[in-house]
Design a protein around this nucleic acid. Sequence first.
DNA 1: TATGAATGAGAATTCATTCAT
DNA 2: TATGAATGAATTCTCATTCAT
Lengths: 209, 209, 209, 209
Amino acid sequence: MRAKSNPIPTDNRSFAEAARRAQIVDCAIDAIAEMGFAKASVDQIAKLAGVSKGVITYHFPKKQEIVDAIIEKVMAAGRAYMEPRILAETSAAGRLRVYIESDLAFIGAYRKPLIALVEIAMNARRDDGGLVIGPDSLAQRAASLEELLRAGQRSGEFRRFNTRVMALTIIQAIDGVPPLLAREPNRDLKLHAKELATIFALATRRPSS
Amino acid sequence: MRAKSNPIPTDNRSFAEAARRAQIVDCAIDAIAEMGFAKASVDQIAKLAGVSKGVITYHFPKKQEIVDAIIEKVMAAGRAYMEPRILAETSAAGRLRVYIESDLAFIGAYRKPLIALVEIAMNARRDDGGLVIGPDSLAQRAASLEELLRAGQRSGEFRRFNTRVMALTIIQAIDGVPPLLAREPNRDLKLHAKELATIFALATRRPSS
Amino acid sequence: MRAKSNPIPTDNRSFAEAARRAQIVDCAIDAIAEMGFAKASVDQIAKLAGVSKGVITYHFPKKQEIVDAIIEKVMAAGRAYMEPRILAETSAAGRLRVYIESDLAFIGAYRKPLIALVEIAMNARRDDGGLVIGPDSLAQRAASLEELLRAGQRSGEFRRFNTRVMALTIIQAIDGVPPLLAREPNRDLKLHAKELATIFALATRRPSS
Amino acid sequence: MRAKSNPIPTDNRSFAEAARRAQIVDCAIDAIAEMGFAKASVDQIAKLAGVSKGVITYHFPKKQEIVDAIIEKVMAAGRAYMEPRILAETSAAGRLRVYIESDLAFIGAYRKPLIALVEIAMNARRDDGGLVIGPDSLAQRAASLEELLRAGQRSGEFRRFNTRVMALTIIQAIDGVPPLLAREPNRDLKLHAKELATIFALATRRPSS
DNA sequence: TATGAATGAGAATTCATTCAT
DNA sequence: TATGAATGAATTCTCATTCAT
């Protein structure tokens, strides 16, 4: 018999709270992925979650907070999935390949959340009219990828090219996949990833001679 | 009594009608490009056009009809711009290069309409929830580009690759440009086009030996 | 036969528009006076007006605009009623008496609008939390009355007193009447006015010897 | 078994209970005074009190009960402050002067509670729409003051005037002070009281000869 | 054709109140 | 007692669409 008699009620509360929030976030992801951002009203999310609308607004007083939670959740999951795989590679070419392959693998595993994320990226706007996932977010991802590309150029693995355009092109090739999946759920992501990896391997490598 | 006092009145009507519709479509493009699809209400479009809301609904009983007209207008303009330039090239590689360069040149010349088109592509949904610019539209563009790519493979100019993935990647690289422009209006499109052309030239060409 | 064939359609429109707005403002006055500011929702106003809620928001996109219209209407009516009567008096004492009597007469004639105005003054708050009829408004009325009082002091009709406190006290004595009326509709306003006039005549006049 | 091991447990409870209620009432006063009646929700009061919302509803099942408690508390404090001071005076004129001066002194010492009380008086409404601080409450205060005024008339200190109107005017002059304070916290209450006392001394006193 | 008034559905948000733990 | 989750009604505002003139 363990001494640990404490039923950690506080943690239980936190846990229940976190579970509710997670449930709402998941239902919001479903709603946005399935009917689009514009139609995913708080009512619809509540209906999907099987709770009253008030529950949603109790846990997320502003709808934007749900959106922020979705962004954070999906982004964090993506980073957690991709980063170790990328860092396990030592060559720039290997890292680029794994960047593409692991992102597409992640997309394959998180289809709906990513479809929702794309919906949010394209539609969600702040009160002032600016996009919620704005230039900064894209620029950050591009900058991180450019770093990888520049490293390859410095090491001589990659040819000279505009790292900005290359990075954006790669990101767009990847970001275009969730919508494709929404339209063709049976698309072969493994193949897609392999082809993309080859395309950008050829586009970046240094001419042999 | 003057001769020819009323020449082709019906055509005049048609002409006036067409002019009105064109004016409305242009204002709708401005509205969508500037405030996003969700905020571009019929009221806003009417305000921009300097006419009463009734005029809009008279010429376009359903808002969706305006959207359809925008899509048709911009798509047609794009085809009119690109097709002769592409067909002027004889090699597959040349056509691919011109495909990319002429599309970006078109985007540069039609910034607002294309930003509006992207807004529509991402946001507009039919009553049943389906996207207005759906799989079919993308599939059509991809199919047309695939035709070009397959021709290059048949002629031996291009290596073996999955034409579907390549076509989608190229289209995504191009379609990603209008949002970039919205965020960075001074982006150098000439450079961007040149880099993209190089990327996909390297990615498609047959290994030399 | 006059050339003036113009049936002034624009004015007709303006007239219909103005009539609608006036009707809505009147119904809003009724609603606020009868159920209080907090309960006088747009729905209630629409119900009182016998129109749909949309009509209200069509003519007054923001509820605050109705409130502003009420304030302006009642204030303007009050000024129009009181000013000529006050200016017809030549002595400061006479003007003060008429100020009080004409304001109470006006209140008697415009009971409901003034009850509504008091509700608004006490309850309506801007988004930032500040009162809609704030310090400025009261200060302005007080300043105007102080001017009258100071004139009486200069001319020797009035004794020395703090004009600010006197002005505020007189205004409060008057502003307190609409709520009294709401509670006791049969209150004798003539008598009330006469008593108030006497009170402030005695309170302001210069000691005789 | 110890003697007196549990001395007056019920009273302890009562005491704790009373303390909690007092704390809640005080926080509700703060909330109403600071953000106005309409914005002072149960949530806000709970936040100010640093307790959960449930605590509020446990002690005051209906929000109206908090409001009633505030009214009772402030009114009682006012009576406790003013009554002995007034009764210490022997002349009617003296009592009237002290009535005014002690009420304003009380207001100066209890700014927030009185601002809250005024908010309640103006805004709070029962389910049936009637004001919470209604005719009866005002009538009671007026009646009490009328008694004082009539005593002065009977003793010959005061002239003949309508005691109802005079009482109401005095009360309104006093009740108008808390809102003034809310807007101008540095207003000189001593001076204000002195001026008011003079005004109503002059307005009530019997003509000398 | 043109106007703009009218409509009603649906959006987010606030809030007093209830209730299980 | 205390907690805070849950509820559902109410409120303001937006907007596509209809319609009389």
